[in-house]
Each structure stands twice: as structure tokens, then as C-alpha cells.
Amino acid sequence: MYYKKIHLNTDCPKIAIMSTNISEKGVKEENEEKQSVMAYRLKCPTAANGGLSHYMFGESPADKALF
């Protein structure tokens, strides 16, 4: 359910983090760990422009079916 608290980097404080230095030892240890980060992007092969559609009425059946 909804809960509101202070958030970073949307309408609340903007704080950037940045890299400083990391030891080679640290790098090797990280690489041995199981992957836990999620990152991906999808594309719709049947829609125009590789995915571009429009308001509520789609052009291709696959496109329409998303909604």
C-alpha cells in the first residue's frame, strides 16, 4: 500500500553519488559474487519504429494487446 516518505532525486533532495576508487582486490571479490542486479530493456518487434505506437488504439494486434 501507499506510504509517503522523503525520497531522493525525484521531487525531493538531489544528491549525486560518484565513484572514488576501488581496490583491485575489491573488484575480484565482487566478480565472484552471484549476480543480483536487475537491468534490461525490451522491444516490440511487430510495432512501427520498433515499438512506437500511439494513444489508446494500437496499430498492430500485438501492439493493441499490450493494453
Partner: peptide, 17 residues
């Protein structure tokens, strides 16, 4: 939250790993 058949029809552009 998305039509499952359509979702299955999408392809990965990239994926970690």
C-alpha cells in the same frame, strides 16, 4: 499488469548478464 501474450512476444534489447 501487461497482457501476458503480448509481453511474451517482446524481445530483449539488452539484459544484464
Amino acid at each position: 499488469y501487461l497482457n501476458e501474450d503480448a509481453l511474451n512476444g517482446l524481445e530483449y534489447k539488452y539484459r544484464l548478464g
